[in-house]
Design a protein around this nucleic acid. Structure first.
Lengths: 155, 155
DNA sequence: TACGAATTAGTCGCACACGAATTAAATGAT
DNA sequence: ATCATTTAATTCGTGTGCGACTAATTCGTA
C-alpha cells in the first residue's frame, strides 16, 4: 500500500476505529462511548482537572471537550464546578457514580479484551512503539503542501 | 493508566489523532484531508472499486464514504459512475488529477515523515503488531455491558 | 487604579463516523 | 411472470473532532 508512512497511518487509522467499534459494542446499551471512557480513565488517574488540563492529558482540543463534558455531566458521571480561585476555570471531578461506572466498564472491557488472546508482551511493545511515533508526530512541524504542487503536472 | 486494554486503546487513540493533525498540517492549504488521503491510497492500490468494496478495504462504513466521495468528486480527484452491468453499483476511479495529486501528497508526506527520524524497522514491527490487534478486534464479539452493571454499587 | 494582553471556556461551522431507516436495482422462489 | 428477499447506495440523526471566533476573567504594567 504505497510508502511506509501511508501504510503506518492507515494501520493506525484502522486500529483506532476497530477499537472504537469494539468499545461501542461493549457499551452499546449504556450511555457510555469510547471517548467518554477515555476521559473517565484520565480523571480516575489524575483526579480533579480543569478543562484545559484535561484537554492536554487526553490530547483533545477543549472545544471538543466542552460539549462532551456537558453530556457526561448530564449523565451524572462527572461534576463541573467553577474554580473559586480562578473563575475562568471549570474543574471536572468524577462523581461516585462515575467511579463505579468506570469500574464496571473496565471489568467489561477487560473481559472482552482478554478473550482476544493477544500476547501481553507484544501489546506492551506495541504501546511503546506507538508512543514513540506519537511523540515525534506531536512535535513535528512538517512543511505544507501547496495547491500548486498538488495540481502541478510537472512530474 | 489503569488496565492494559485502556492503555492500549488510549495510545491508539492519541496516535491516530497525532497522525490526523500531522497530515492536516501538511494538507492545510489544499482541499485534501487525512481520510481523503487514505481513500486515494486505496484507490491507487486497487484501481476501480464500487463503494461497498472501498468501504471494506478502508474499514469505513459506506454511509461515511458517500458524502466523502461526493466532496472528492466535486474536488476532481475521483470520478463516480454507475456500473452499466449493475445499476446499483457506483464505481469509483482516480482521475488523472487525482493521480498527480496523490503523487504530490505522498512526496510531501514522505518528506515530513522522514524528518521525524523514526526507526524504519521499529515502524515495520509496530505495523505488524497493530495489524494483529486490529484483526482480532475486528473479529471479536464482546459481551455487552448492561445498564444495571454500569450503575450497580455491588462491588 | 486602569487598561491592554493573555488565559480559559464556550459557540459556530464544517468534516468525519456510525446505526438505523430508506430507496432503487437485481436475484430467487414459486 | 410475479413478488419477496437481498444487495447497494443514500439520507437522517447524533456524536466526536478541529479551526476560528467570542465572552469572561485574570494578569502585567504603567
Amino acid at each position: 500500500m504505497g510508502p511506509l508512512d501511508a501504510h503506518y497511518c492507515f494501520t493506525a487509522y484502522k486500529l483506532n476505529r476497530s477499537f472504537a467499534r469494539f468499545y461501542q459494542t461493549v457499551f452499546a446499551d449504556t450511555g457510555l462511548t469510547y471517548p467518554k471512557y477515555v476521559i473517565l480513565n484520565v480523571l480516575a488517574e489524575d483526579g480533579a482537572l480543569a478543562i484545559s488540563q484535561l484537554s492536554e492529558r487526553a490530547g483533545v482540543e477543549n472545544n471538543t471537550l466542552s460539549p462532551l463534558l456537558k453530556r457526561m455531566a448530564d449523565f451524572g458521571v462527572i461534576a463541573r464546578e467553577r474554580d473559586p480561585e480562578d473563575e475562568r476555570r471549570v474543574v471536572i471531578t468524577l462523581t461516585p457514580m462515575g467511579r463505579s461506572a468506570l469500574k464496571a466498564a473496565r471489568a467489561a472491557v477487560a473481559n472482552g479484551f482478554a478473550e482476544l488472546g493477544l500476547d501481553p508482551e507484544e501489546v506492551k511493545r506495541s504501546i511503546v512503539y506507538m508512543g514513540h511515533a506519537q511523540a515525534k508526530l506531536e512535535k513535528a512541524s512538517p512543511r505544507k503542501l501547496t495547491m500548486a504542487a498538488l495540481l502541478g503536472q510537472s512530474d
